[in-house]
């Protein structure tokens, strides 16, 4: 069951403290410290969308400016999720404004559009349901999910074992996980 839970409990308390401290003191250095924690992620996201290192670096700085403006205007529950949305929206706006038009297939956007904080509580009788749901999965998804979550293998090893490409492994796991979740939710309603 454990594999549907978040593997990492994100350390929100530290973020909250920094955010609180910034709001009280207005000290930009505090905000910068908070931002720096996630800057490599913001940069990575920018790289994904803008596909250019210099553009991405500028975007990271611009996102920080946006952060300065917006951080006091919005109620932020989880800084990390909020920053993720802020960064992504910024990049999408950037693409839309024509600075760097690049067609993105829709499902690439949808791929990670799952909720950031899934409900982590599963009941015991879900176990049986999960097994049933897993049997219903398409075979490649079932294999990849099993290898990834049960055997705790990495993408590379799974790819070597199954003969799928790494990207296929990844999307099989993602889609399998999503299908399992949908299946389980249906199960609970009945």
């Amino acid at each position: 069951m454990i594999f549907l839970k978040s593997a990492n409990k994100p350390d929100h308390t530290d973020d909250e403290q920094l955010l609180h401290q910034y709001r009280q003191t207005g000290d930009m250095a505090v905000l910068a410290r908070l931002y720096e924690k996630y800057m490599h992620l913001v940069y990575g996201v920018c790289l994904k969308y803008l596909k250019d290192e210099e553009l991405s670096k500028d975007a990271v700085m611009q996102i920080f400016e946006e952060l300065v403006v917006k951080v006091n205007r919005h109620e932020i529950k989880y800084f990390k999720s909020w920053l993720y949305m802020l960064s992504r929206n910024f990049c999408l706006m950037e693409l839309r404004s024509g600075k760097k038009i690049q067609e993105q297939p829709l499902d690439e956007f949808m791929e990670f559009a799952e909720e950031m904080h899934p409900v982590n509580v599963y009941r015991e009788d879900d176990m049986a349901a999960l097994e049933r749901c897993k049997q219903k999965l398409p075979k490649p998804q079932k294999i990849c999910v099993d290898l990834f979550y049960t055997d705790e293998q990495c993408y590379k090893d799974i790819a070597a074992q199954t003969g799928y490409a790494i990207n296929e492994v990844k999307s099989n796991i993602q889609n399998g996980k999503r299908n399992l979740k949908i299946c389980l939710e249906k199960n609970r309603e009945h």
């Binding site: 594999f3 978040s6 593997a7 990492n8 994100p10 990575g44 990670f112 990834f148 796991i173």
Partner: peptide, 14 residues
Amino acid sequence: ERQAQDDPFLAEAL
């Protein structure tokens, strides 16, 4: 990879 599966932020950055 597990973290990336749970964390779209990390996944997209990767």
